[in-house]
Nucleic acid binder design. Structure first.
Length: 414
DNA sequence: CCTCCACAGGAAACAGGGGCGA
DNA sequence: TCGCCCCTGTTTCCTGTGGAGG
């Protein structure tokens, strides 16, 4: 039955993927790592940052800057863009820009090693005393007259682990004879300076730039600009971009979300061998993103919460109607010894159920049954078989796989 | 209209693990 | 190194409450 098909495509497993026109011209354009040539609706911030950094071109030291803004507001893109422009505008090659992401490079040693390597210094991954790495870096830096702009993306991650680096870097200029350093801190936590050493705070925050969230129209512009590069002409249905923008604007103006949505919609359309991306694909993409989020949340839940979820799952499986907190607690009590977990109190389970409700995994309603008391009715908002398979991925719960409800539990003494 | 069920959910105490200064 | 404090998750104790049945 399938032989015919196999023979015709035997030229290669991927033949059908190569042959078909495809939707994407370049899907990387829609990834967050891509830095576009133009940044719509960020002209103001670009100007501000550029005017602060401009003195570097005359060999003067620019002020240190802190850049604030929520995720997906273009902080990193603007910083990288301006950095690139600065290096290109610099004729005498006296200034350079070093970008590093403090979420990846997250300790004092690694930051300094990274900086020193930028000047072709050989620094081992580990082993040297930190101050040796520091002086190595400083010497390399001071070899000639130049201005170095250091961009620290997600500085807040660095602060959590002690801000010694920031302190050292912020006063490195007094240690230098020829070279000059200017710092740019990028943070999405507006309050992170509260945890900062006051000296670092005042030196780092000489200048501040705030990035407001995008609104729906602005996101739409960004999407249109990227879509032109990312997709083949004519594959986008008219309402796709406005829809993506509307979904993302609802989530506090995060452009990254909008781009993800568009990219995933494209991937879904491509997989479906569709010639066009339609509204349906965008909705499917939104659902997929939401599903992935829920899956991630469930996977990282503490064991106790997973047990509670599993209890509700079992109750749902035996088609119990109106699942109450105490029914869940009864089931939970039975499960605990099976996985060798200390059981918590009823009160605590009430809270765990409330948390699961908050996360959108459950849905609960408080109802009063008059004479017969007051309870919470609980229902799952995740597809039960799916939930089961996610929960059983946890090795601690594997013993529950073939557990079935003892009958006397259902019709036990009243 | 009143009662009283069977819980919800607030308040406070508690446990124990980690970080920090002396 | 020790003691102290703080933070988070938990327990204990408690008060509050919507509405069916009397």
């Amino acid at each position: 039955m399938f032989e015919g098909v196999l023979v015709t495509t035997s030229s290669g497993l991927f033949a059908s993927f190569v042959g078909q026109g495809g939707i994407f011209r370049s899907r990387d354009v829609l990834r967050s790592t891509y830095t576009p040539k133009e940044l719509p609706h960020r002209e103001e911030q670009i100007q501000e940052l550029a005017s602060v950094l401009a003195p570097a071109l005359h060999g003067e030291t620019p002020s240190n800057i802190l850049i604030y803004g929520k995720t997906g507001t273009g902080k990193t893109a603007v910083a990288k863009y301006v950095g690139k422009e600065l290096e290109e505008a610099d004729a005498g090659s006296t200034c350079s820009v070093i970008y590093l992401n403090c979420e990846v490079v997250d300790t004092q040693y690694r930051v300094l090693a990274h900086l020193a390597r930028h000047f072709d210094k050989d620094i081992p991954m580990t082993g040297w005393p930190t101050d040796q790495v520091y002086s190595e870096f400083r010497n390399a830096l001071d070899e000639k007259k130049r201005v170095v702009v250091i961009m620290l993306d997600e500085v807040d991650k660095l602060v959590r682990k002690g801000d010694d680096v920031l302190y050292n870097l912020s006063r490195i200029n007094s240690d230098l004879v020829q070279a000059r350093v200017s710092l740019i801190g990028i943070s999405n936590d507006l309050k992170f300076t509260e945890f900062l050493d006051p000296r670092v705070k005042s030196s780092l925050g000489e200048d501040e730039i705030i990035f407001p969230p995008y609104n729906a129209e602005q996101i739409q512009d960004i999407l249109e600009q990227r879509a032109e590069l990312a997709f083949r002409p004519g594959v986008l249905a008219d309402d796709v971009i406005p829809l993506c923008a509307a979904f993302a604007a609802r989530e506090h103006g995060d452009a990254r979300r909008a781009l993800d949505l568009l990219r995933i919609a494209g991937e879904i359309a491509e997989r479906a061998r569709s010639q066009m991306i339609t509204e349906e694909h965008v909705k499917a993409a939104r659902d997929k993103i939401e599903q992935d989020r829920v899956e991630e949340v469930i996977k990282t839940l503490p064991t106790q919460s997973k047990l509670v979820l599993y209890s509700i799952l079992l109750l749902e499986e035996q088609a119990a109607r109106n699942i109450t907190t105490s029914a869940v607690y009864g089931m939970y009590k039975q499960l605990c010894p099976l996985v060798e977990v200390e059981s918590l109190t009823h009160r605590r389970i009430t809270d765990l159920i409330a948390e699961l409700d908050m996360l959108g995994i459950l849905h609960t309603v408080v109802i009063s049954k008059g004479r017969y008391g007051r309870t919470k009715e609980i229902s799952l908002s995740v597809h039960p078989p799916k939930l089961k398979s996610i929960l059983l991925q946890d090795y601690r719960l594997k013993d529950l796989a073939n557990f079935s409800v003892p009958t006397q539990a259902r019709f036990g003494p009243v």
